[in-house]
Structures are given as structure tokens and as C-alpha cells.
Computed example of a mutant assay.
Amino acid sequence: MAKIEGDENEKNALDCQHQDILRTIFEKCKYESVHGLQRPLELYRERVLYYTDTTEHVLDAVLNSENVSYRPDLFDRAVINDSLKTMYAQQESFSFNDIYEKIKDKVKVPDLNSFCRAMKQLGYKPMNTNYGNIIVEDPKLAYERYLFLKKMFKLRAASKAIYYIDERTIDLNKTFKKPWLDNEDVTNNEGYVFFHVVSRNGLEKGLFCNQANAEDFSKWISDIVLSFMKASSVIIMDNSPLHGKTVIEPISRHHTKADMLSWLQRNNIPCSPSMRKAELYDLIARCPVKDRQYQLDLIFQAHGHEVLRLPENYHDLSMTELLWEHILSSAFSFETTNVFNLKTKVYNAITTIRQEKWLQFETIIKDTENNIFVVDQAIEQALDAYEIDPRDVM
């Protein structure tokens, strides 16, 4: 529903504790606008505690609650997006509850509250339109996904070698989760973190670490991974903190005209050298994508490779995700109380996967990319019939 600035009902809906947290965050952001960041970006827990004046105990309680919440996988999101496509075409108002009623028998969603929370975390929110309230994804996310998929189609058509880089926690819980994604510390004293590179040919390289950090990961890439990659390859990975820090800030008015043109071209935004800097920056300011470059990406680029970061909320659009689903559902026995033995069993399970299974993984990912692209396009066209309340996009 459209937000009305100064709406007293909306203010009253916030309890005193929420109002205090908002005031605290506002004052600290205001202070930082003059004095700069007060906590380093990589210290994300400390940043949350600083901004909210929250205790470690409260933060852990909230995160533990989030950990058990529903997270739609690729299949669930395909069902959700297909339902949204149909509902947009009907040009009627609908809510989170309406979507839930349509998909609850097709996906394993626990309940309505879990579904609503998951959808909001994925960037969906109510919008007021000429046909009433509807649920719409943040267009920035759809745009970034479009750019990723278009690049993937182009690179696949050029028959580039594609490598997927990832990591998993190997411990006696045997869940093989991604560190960081589930608020886990990658320093695992009771197990390992497994760095690995896979391709259509199988496991290319792997490394088990006890003390895993971004420096270890970067050294593994530089010393081992780069040595076996084919020339002009493509590297796919997500934005895990292990995968490097950003080294270039988004473009500003103070950059040169050449910098602005380069930025726009990198983001596939039409522009012309004949345009003035003010015109170029106007395009940049209106662009929903952020130009994020990472130190690790620059290392790959220096060796002639191209890096693509998985779109936000689509970290599982990777062959590694299918690999670990296969490992968890396979007949391999991981019964052991010794983490070293578990490490050996996991490694043997991965290395004995037959070539046709890896090719099947590749086909599934390619088909999924195509399906996402087609459905996103249909949703975009259907949404053209809607007029969004301008107060909802301010």
C-alpha cells in the first residue's frame, strides 16, 4: 500500500522499542555521513550491534530464529514466479496470502508467516497500483539477474570453459552448509571448510581448511587454482566474504568522462562519447545496478579470465549446489564419529561421481537459466499494464 509521509497511524504502529532503534540508527548514520564509517564493513556483526545498540545475546536469538525459517530453493522460486506471472496477467489485486494459497500444495512451505518472511527477504513487497495492491519484486534485483543471464548466454555461446567456485562446512552435523550463509563462522574447530572448483568435467581442485578466511581463499586461488584453468575461462561464484572485498567504489560526479563511459559500458547501458559528463552521470544515477569490483576478480582478470558473481538471492544457480544435493541424497554412507574420516568419505564421494552426472548438472543449470529468463521477461511484460503509485517508489 502506498506510504504517506507523516502518517500518524504508521508511527503509532511502531512500539517504543522500535522507535528507539530507528532513532539510534538515524543518529549513527548521520554521524557517519560526516566522519565516515565507524566500524569496518567486514565486521558485520559488530556493525549490527553498533547501529542498533543490541546485545550479542539478542542478536544470536534473532539469527537462530532466522536460521529455521523457510528459504525457497530454485524449484520453489520457479513455482512462485510462475504463479506471479499468471496473477499479473489477470490484472487483479492480490496479497502474500493469495500467492501462498496458490503455491502451498506445490512447495514445502511451512506456513503463511514463514512464506511472508521469506518473500520479504527476497525483495518482494506490496505496491499500490491502478488495479489495487499487488506484490512486486525489487526491480533492481530483476535487472541484476537479467545482466547475469545475458552474459551467461553470451559466454556459453562462445564455448568458454566455465568453473564454479564454492565452499562448504564439513563437520559431524553432515549438513554440508555454506559458511556465512547460515550465520556460521568459517573458523571451524570441529571440522573443515572445503574450498572447491567444479566444472562439467567434475571436481577440478579442492582444499580442506580448519582456519578459513579471505586471505587463505585468495592464496589458494593464486597458488593453485589459476595454474590449471584454461585460457579465457569464466569463473562463477557468490558474494561470500571469503570471496574478497570490494576495491572500487561506485562511480561519482568527480570521476573522469572516460571513467563514466567505461562504467556505463560495463553495465550494458547505452551511451555515447558525444554526451556531456552531466548527461553520463544522470544515466549512472538512474541505474539500479551497483558497480562492484572485487580484488579477487581483478586477479582473475589479470590472467585473462572473466568473473561473474551470482545474482542476489540466486546463490544456488550453481553446479556446486546440485553437487551437494546429490551428495546428501546419494547412497554414500557418511556414518562416522571422526571428522577426518568424514572428510575422506566426502572427498571420495565427490571424485567417484561419473562424468554423465556432471553433464546432467550442467544441463539442469542451463535449463534453469533459460526458464528464469523467459519467466522474468513474461513478468516484465505483464507488469507494463500496471501503473505503480509513485509514493511507493520514492
Rank of each mutant, 00 (worst) to 15 (best):
F26T: 09
K3N: 14
D259M: 13
V289N: 13
T169Y: 03
P241K: 13
S33Y: 01
P126W: 02
E321G: 02
W180Q: 12
A382Y: 11
R168A: 04
K104W: 07
T363I: 13
Y124K: 00
F115E: 00
A61L: 02
K174Y: 10
E335H: 12
N12I: 07
L296E: 09
V197F: 07
N64C: 07
L37N: 09
D76H: 12
D316C: 04
T336R: 14
L84M: 08
F148G: 05
L342V: 12
M229Y: 11
F361E: 00
I99V: 09
W220L: 05
L226S: 06
V374H: 03
E249V: 07
K219S: 02
I25D: 00
S318F: 11
G304P: 09
L84H: 07
N130E: 09
S69A: 00
E362P: 02
K104R: 15
E10Q: 11
D98F: 11
N67T: 03
M119P: 12
A258F: 15
G123C: 09
T86N: 11
A161M: 03
S159I: 04
E137R: 09
F332M: 05
N173F: 01
Y44Q: 08
V289H: 14
V58Q: 00
H35M: 10
F96P: 00
D392L: 12
V234P: 08
V289L: 14
Y294E: 08
Y163A: 04
A212S: 15
T352R: 07
K357P: 05
K343Q: 06
N210T: 06
E190W: 02
D166T: 03
L207A: 07
Y386A: 06
A61I: 10
Y294G: 08
L261W: 14
C287D: 15
M229G: 06
L383E: 09
A118P: 08
H255P: 02
H196G: 01
Q90C: 08
W180K: 04
L283W: 13
S329G: 10
D171N: 04
W263H: 15
L37C: 07
P311I: 14
W324Q: 05
H196D: 05
R391E: 06
L14C: 15
N12T: 14
T336F: 14
K177M: 07
N348K: 06
V346N: 05
